[in-house]
């Protein structure tokens, strides 16, 4: 009997409160058209389209599910494991939904000198997130119980002269001193 684990068993997918803000994976003609467009950027080797396809899917569904991996593997005809190994390597791909607003605070040297540790502490307090179980390798993201917020430390975001800096989804914020944490959250909590 074949005892090798199924893809579902291999995909690490802790349940997350953030999931309710995203639709479950389902391919739509619009999304597929964008994926086809991305594939066309790699006329010499289709496998190069793995990262762009993952980005398009994650943007819509919040994270990369086993279903999504299966779909991609059929679409571009490469083994699911070749996709899973990419997803599990890059910190930018999630296997579990982040919050509706995902906040990445830079923790690298210049930002740390400018107070990014305190900014993170302040943000955790305001959003009610407990980061005590977080570590940079295995559990970098912590999601609030309501699923609205998630926090993660990022490495140097290339704006070291204006630290502490952070990203909220795709929005970049500079010079966010710990005292400005509340303002930042207020911008998004409407």
């Amino acid at each position: 009997m074949d005892k090798s684990p199924t893809l579902d068993q291999q995909v690490n997918h802790p349940v997350s409160a953030g999931e309710k803000h995203f639709a479950p994976f389902a391919m739509t003609p619009e999304l597929e058209a964008r994926i086809d467009e991305a594939i066309s950027h790699y006329p010499d080797q289709i496998r190069s389209s793995v990262l762009p396809i993952l980005h398009l899917i994650q943007h819509q569904f919040g994270f990369i599910s086993a279903q999504a991996i299966t779909w991609i593997s059929e679409k571009i005809e490469i083994e699911p494991m070749r996709i899973l190994e990419v997803v599990s390597f890059y910190p930018g791909f999630h296997q579990s939904a982040p919050g509706k607003f995902h906040i990445r605070v830079c923790r690298t040297l210049s930002c740390a000198m400018a107070g990014s540790e305190n900014l993170m502490a302040e943000l955790s307090k305001i959003t009610g997130i407990d980061r005590s179980a977080c570590d940079s390798h295995h559990q970098p993201v912590a999601v609030s119980d309501c699923g609205t917020w998630s926090l993660e430390f990022a490495e140097c975001l290339a704006s070291c002269g204006t630290g502490p800096v952070c990203l909220v989804n795709d929005d970049f914020h500079e010079a966010v001193s710990p005292a400005k944490a509340q303002d930042l959250i207020s911008q998004y909590s409407k």
Partner: peptide, 25 residues
Amino acid sequence: YIHRGAGAYICGEETGLIESLEGKR
């Protein structure tokens, strides 16, 4: 064409970057 990374410093090293552009780790 634009190719977007996914949050890994080692993609700045040119051969790591090339592997990433090939759709790999």
